[in-house]
Design a binder for these strands. Structure first.
Lengths: 165, 165
DNA sequence: CGGTATCCCATTTGATACTG
DNA sequence: CAGTATCAAATGGGATACCG
């Protein structure tokens, strides 16, 4: 399968990956969450080549994750800001941050510490079930396909498959 | 900057991306969480080319995320199982699933529903602060670098930078 | 500052065939 | 079943130069 068709799969994970799964893209988003807004900030922050950065920013804007606005006050100043859709990616960043802290940290400990402003605690977000409040463990979750026994099989063009996930 | 050196950055997000940021890799992991264990299951599940799959599986095993075991009972049968380190990636998958459900779903609704076995509820995990129990919003979090004002600047070889994030 | 344009090499990929 | 081997084609990526 071509990567371009991954976004067409009937799977939210695949669709998400098709948009933010590109490696530099997530790094750009990390910077966005750290408050970066300008082209050159992203460039130095991520170390990405300028032409690639340009292309990735354009894609993020096209996908409604960043919005490109002319900054007030200074003329010719452009800012890229996270939209609601973009801000909603925060759990993804946090999940990576946390996993990295847990499994990839060096002897100095986590490079970054998070503080929850509203309660003042130095903390790391955890995933819970909103119904019962318990921590989520992978083994406790069951995934149910939308249409359990109804497999749509398309006429099969080449290696084109459908994945009902 | 070369992508290979991203893993060396002093940033947990970057380090995590260096390992699981590859596009097919996350798709393989999605399948792993859905219970897939065999080479061919992954192959049909993801649609990835066999040689690439082979290479990705090897990397995942090398990184301690999957373990390659000879299945008992059937001879010559290999299984790839999530290790503890791999299972710990679950929040990442869920975060993607949820974002995709929210922002990329078609008119049929989410392709997959999650059920929390322990409480029986059809649910979607949320991120909360373990201290105060409140939902986490990006704006409520502040990130503090480990060594706030101490910037190490290396002799600068080529475009090599350091990012203290 | 905020990009585009271009060049050109390195890597990835997909398909296919083959092996123990 | 679980891969390897091979190879052509596409893509990605870095450097650099240039523009409004």
């Amino acid at each position: 399968m071509r990567w371009d068709s991954v976004g067409d799969l009937n799977c939210s994970v695949a669709r998400t990956l098709a948009i933010v799964g590109e490696r530099w893209t997530m790094l750009i988003l990390r910077d966005a969450f750290l408050g970066h807004r300008r082209f050159d900030e992203f460039q130095t922050g991520t170390g990405i080549a300028r032409n690639i950065l340009s292309s990735r920013l354009r894609a993020l804007v096209a996908n409604g994750i960043l919005e490109r606005v002319k900054a007030e006050g200074e003329v010719g100043r452009i800012e890229y800001r996270l939209t609601k859709k973009g801000i909603d990616l925060y759990p993804l960043i946090v999940a990576m941050l946390k996993w990295g802290d847990t499994w990839l940290a060096d002897e100095h400990g986590p490079p970054l510490t998070l503080i929850h402003r509203t309660c003042g605690a130095r903390t790391t977000p955890v995933m819970v079930c909103p119904q019962c409040g318990q921590h989520i463990a992978a083994r406790d979750m069951v995934a149910i396909p939308r249409r359990p026994a109804h497999h749509v099989r398309r006429p099969a063009r080449g290696t084109h498959r459908q994945a009902s996930r």
